[in-house]
Amino acid sequence: MTLFRLAGDLSHVLAILLLLYKIWTTKSAAGISGKTQLMFCMVYVTRYLDLFTSFISVYNSTMKVLFISASVATVYLIYFKFKATYDGNHDTFRMEFVIVPALILALIWNYAFTFFEISWAFSIFLEAVAILPQLFMVTKTGEAENITSHYLFALGSYRALYILNWIDRYYFEGHWDPIAVTAGIVQTVLYGDFFYLYFTRVIKGRKLQVLP
């Protein structure tokens, strides 16, 4: 466990808790893409199939349970409990445009043509693009609540920190995971524009506005 990976996981947990906090306290899913959250659910379920078959550590299992349960809870809040506040008109990204390519790529590029490895690769590829509906929604609505911006910053930072972890592991352990690293770089690059807006606006106390 490198420090970067621990920082990345904590940033990930922070993001998940920030989103639950925002929806629960404002009793509103306004500005949140349900489609992104649905895809995150898929990401965790397809990635952690080994939750009950391979025990790595208490930390590893606890985090997997947390990620799966928190993402299910988030989807429940958006599509059921606070359904009336879900802004479906602005959450128009076609999920199949990312789910299908991720599945096809996983069938082509995987470490073994087994259900588990294909499911894992699908999860890695899907996670890289799952944020797209949310980023599209922010550009469509033209702005994001501050807490939503902080959520996105924490979420984008998590995989960026993982990249540092992979560099660290390659340097010290001499191996790396091409699938995870490639997808992780794509995932982090997709936040590029958001990171720019975050650092130039939100940090200075202004609302995140996507300039028209």
Partner: peptide
């Protein structure tokens, strides 16, 4: 190889 490299990661 890459396979086991990051299965201990989340």
């Amino acid at each position: 190889s890459g396979a086991t490299a990051s299965k201990d990661e989340l």
